[in-house]
């Protein structure tokens, strides 16, 4: 008996896999549909992850502690306090707003409120103190920063108390709640998407298993004419890979109109993220993940399913 090359074997396996796919048209079509759903779930999880991440980051950015100083607080003292706060490990940034800026901001905010502006004019002097806006790295760290500011008896060089108030203690419940929500949304998102992905992979796996179950007689005949295990497995795995590849391509194409349609909605609903732009921007990574998942799921589930019907 002559030995044939690996290349010839591979060619035969791929050809048989393709014919297998083509000739059991309806079954292949059904597998592709199920696989598309799974890959869409995986793709959806990527988008949900991105939306969550960006939204959470935005929300975190919106939380800060404002330290209001008395109007007579010397700027030098405030700036030296700023430097001190910046050295704290929990702090991500500190912004200094001097009295004039605070006044400008106030004017801007109350542009359409004539009475307030009038009252301000009548005061003559600038009633607003300077402000430090402090941002922490994690929402849960605000308490520590606030406590630091409270405990440090912050006095000016003349020994005078310069902090008027720290708004953390007023915002505390809101900040606490938000940090809890941020954490649970992230955890819940992770668990839910994992569960969804696992469930859909199991469904695809079972569909592939059913298609191979239909071929179990064929598998035994192949073995009966002396085909080796790998030679029986090969074409089924090739079919699985083909199903995964086609499903992956169709899914990435389907994501264009879907993301386009969802784009404006998400931009308004979530803070500033347009999923269509996100998809375009990360197209190669996302397409790779989806197509690779399809191929991997197709190959592994076919491999495991055929193995079940192989004897010897």
């Amino acid at each position: 008996m002559e030995k044939i090359e690996f290349k010839t074997k591979l060619k035969r396996v791929i050809k048989a896999g393709f014919f297998n796919f083509w000739r059991s048209g309806y079954i292949s079509f059904a597998s592709i549909l199920v696989m598309i759903i799974t890959l869409s779930v995986i793709g959806g999880v990527i988008f949900i992850g991105a939306v969550l991440n960006i939204t959470m980051a935005e929300l975190r950015n919106k939380v800060d502690i404002n330290v209001y100083f008395i109007t007579t607080a010397p700027e030098n003292d405030i700036l030296s306090l700023k430097t001190k706060i910046e050295t704290l490990p929990e702090v991500s940034s500190v912004e200094y707003i001097n009295r004039e800026q605070a006044l400008d901001n106030f004017r801007l905010r109350h542009e359409n409120d004539q009475i307030t502006i009038q009252a301000l004019e009548e005061l003559g002097d600038n009633p607003l103190g300077a402000v430090l806006n402090i941002k922490a790295k994690e929402p849960s760290q605000y308490e520590g920063i606030a406590n630091f500011l409270n405990e440090e008896n912050i006095l000016s060089s003349q020994g005078q108390k310069i902090i008027d108030k720290i708004n953390y203690f007023e915002n505390r419940t809101a900040i606490d709640k938000l940090s809890r929500i941020v954490n649970s949304v992230e955890n819940l998102g992770l668990v839910t998407s994992l569960a969804l992905v696992i469930v859909s992979i199991i469904i695809t796996f079972n569909t592939v298993r059913l298609t191979i179950y239909i071929s179990r007689e064929e598998i035994s005949v192949m073995q009966l004419v002396g085909a080796s295990k790998n030679y029986v497995k090969g074409p089924f795995v090739a079919t699985g890979i083909l199903v995964g590849l086609i499903s992956g391509l169709v899914t990435t194409i389907l994501f264009f109109p879907i993301c386009y349609w969802l784009g404006n909605t998400t931009q308004n609903f979530f803070i500033g993220l347009n999923v269509f732009d996100y998809y375009i921007g990360n197209f190669f990574q996302i397409a790779f993940i989806i197509i690779f998942s399809g191929v991997a799921i197709g190959a592994v589930s076919s491999f495991l399913a055929v193995r079940k019907y192989l004897k010897l």
Binding site: M1, E2, K3, I4, M222, V225, G226, A227, S228, Y231
Partner: peptide
Amino acid sequence: AFAMEAAGRPD
């Protein structure tokens, strides 16, 4: 052909 392929016969 399948039986021949299984036996490793050339094309």
